[in-house]
Design a protein around this nucleic acid. Structure first.
Lengths: 350, 350
DNA sequence: GTTGGCACTCGGGAGGATAGAGTGCTAATC
DNA sequence: GATTAGCACTCTATCCTCCCGAGTGCCAAC
């Protein structure tokens, strides 16, 4: 995009003004609000040019201009400067996240909540991707005949468990044997290297009769697989209703309808993450603007996520879904700060 | 309320018509849609009377009438007849709930989801009130130095756990001793009879040094207390946006804003339950209509809940929040049926 | 107690005029 | 060649006004 300096400033100003007023911005009001040393006619020429390049557009002939998705993209990529949060804002966020909790999950929920409150938008977080974390402990506890609890402690400081059904005849001692055998041979293995075969091999060393053994092993395997399933935490959906961008009930309905399918949103975030990795992107955050988002009803939204790290190899995403007409520089720095604090707090768990 | 038969029929007809058309209903259209053997003028007299009694009201002078909260209340208490679901509808619900799950929590979530889908409204469920269930097992597992997992199995077939911090110096053996001591003396005790003192007394029989012991006991106690905390599951908030009753963005915003504070909703449901118990109500469901609901923004809603039973002494609530302009007879039977199926499925867990 | 008749009320939709912000284009100027 | 003033044009949003129609309350008659 070869834009001369003034055109860049014009685009910058249009985005700024539109974000703060929610009104299409015209050449004249642009002159009034900013100190361009040229006339409105000159800006009109520039604006015609910017429109030709697809960076801004007119809602209708006699209105001002609003940024297009491409315009926002240009703004985000090359024009904006990210501002630090004020100490006051930082303090506010720190205070909210710092409430001591005993589990990583709680911490992540905390951070998500904080992010929604500080940005005023929908916030979301993915649970950590645990595939690369390894098993530190695995215990099978007998709950009652036919039922047991598989408890796993993972390297990332995460505890997972799952109630499973087991054959009725198995006694406490047999379960302990199986539990011990699995633990002994799987400890230290990353979750994504554990297969049904690995688990079955591990169980072979016990003297528990075959068919009974097999079912327990299978259930243990299923519990391990379930441990690295992804969860998503979404919060603040109702805040979207307060934004003028969603004052049309139809849009609001589509948006909240889509967000209510958390599995779909989770899938999308995951896909974003994968794409970013493939591209070897080294940005600390990912942004999707308007139509770049392939989820239905999010055409007027932007999606910004950052990656938090629980350990070197275990990470997840945290971010925001807001209107594409948002103060990107501010929101990005808010996400960034929350992520930073989240990372710091996470160190306490690993 | 001393209403002659025709007035009852008129009120019944007004509620029915208004629920199905969402238009204020006038004397003339009442004649057209129903077979009253009187003229519209007569109905006008009846309607004036009903209005005088506060059962119906006019949005403005020249409109038809709509039921007031009191009118709906009369309808629900004395006029409506609850209709059975069709076999087809029953099947639909059964199919959705019957998906086999391993934990009660999952089952409840399932039921909530089903209820939202079948009614088209917001559904909610409270987790079972576990105060009256007793401890069947309690194990403390060492996770790593300074950290342990308290696992509790309750009589109602529910498994709860909590990660707790413990003194760094404690070793595996000491923890097991404490764990065993607590389990031995608390097994069989209802949760609400377990106090910090009970737990501390239980721990005395071990030879673990006092200050270390004390912290573990305290954490175990906290874990037990946390086990009977109430959770609420809310689902389908976005569905409210599709209802004409909430086509005003302001109302929709207030409603979803309130519902987003799940703690508050949970508190309210709990209060409803307590009031019903005090009154010794033997209804199988509770209904709050319009202004009877003290939550902000729910003036145009009705709140219907039923009580499910996990065991004789352990129960929770499941129900719906919908517009007060709803088909009560239908919704109530839907809730009732879901509750029934939920109870049946729950038997498998206890 | 019921009914037909009638004057009255009020919201909502249709049509029309107007203001105002903004545009593109042209011709003159720097 | 870039910039500017000026101007005719465009389109939306808003405000009036008017009027239809559904509904009401009340009265006098049955």
């Amino acid at each position: 995009m070869q834009l001369d300096n003034r055109k860049k400033e014009v685009l910058h100003a249009i985005v700024d003004d539109y974000v703060s007023t929610n009104e299409p911005v015209g050449s004249k009001s642009l002159i009034e609000r900013h100190s361009f040393n040229v006339s409105s006619a000159t800006l009109r020429n520039d604006m015609a040019e910017l429109e030709h390049l697809g960076l801004i557009e007119k809602p209708h002939t006699s209105a001002g201009r609003i940024p297009s998705d491409k315009g926002y993209r240009e703004y985000v990529n090359s024009l904006m400067t990210i501002e630090e949060l004020t100490p006051r804002e930082q303090l506010e966020i720190e205070k909210r996240i710092n409430t001591s909790v005993d589990e990583v999950t709680e911490l992540i929920k905390n951070a998500t909540h904080t992010l929604s409150e500080t940005t005023g938008f929908v916030s979301l977080a993915m649970s950590p991707r645990l595939k690369k974390s390894f098993l530190k402990q695995l215990k099978i506890l007998m709950i009652e005949p036919g039922k047991a609890l598989v408890v796993m402690v993972l390297s990332a400081g995460v505890v997972k468990d799952k109630v499973v059904r087991i054959p009725n005849f198995l006694n406490d001692e047999q379960i302990m044997k199986i539990s011990g055998a699995i633990e002994k041979s799987l400890t230290g293995k990353p979750l994504d290297e554990i297969t049904l075969v690995t688990v079955e091999t591990a169980g072979k060393s016990t003297d528990v009769p075959e068919p009974l053994l097999k079912q327990v092993l299978y259930e243990a395997y299923a519990a391990i697989k379930q441990a690295d399933e992804l969860n998503i935490y979404l919060e603040g959906e109702h805040r979207m209703l307060s934004l003028p961008d969603f004052s049309s009930l139809g849009r609001a309905r589509d948006l909240l309808g889509t967000l209510s399918d958390s599995g779909m949103v989770a899938g999308y975030v995951n896909e974003m993450e994968n794409v970013a990795r493939e591209l070897g992107s080294d940005d600390s955050y990912m942004i999707r603007i308007g139509q770049e988002i392939t989820l239905e009803g999010l055409d007027d939204c932007s999606f910004i996520t950052a990656t938090y790290n629980l350990t070197d190899s275990v990470s997840g995403n945290i971010g925001v879904i807001g209107p594409k007409r948002m103060l990107y520089s501010k929101v990005i720095s808010q996400i960034d700060f929350v992520k930073k604090k989240l990372n710091e707090e996470m160190k306490k768990f690993t």
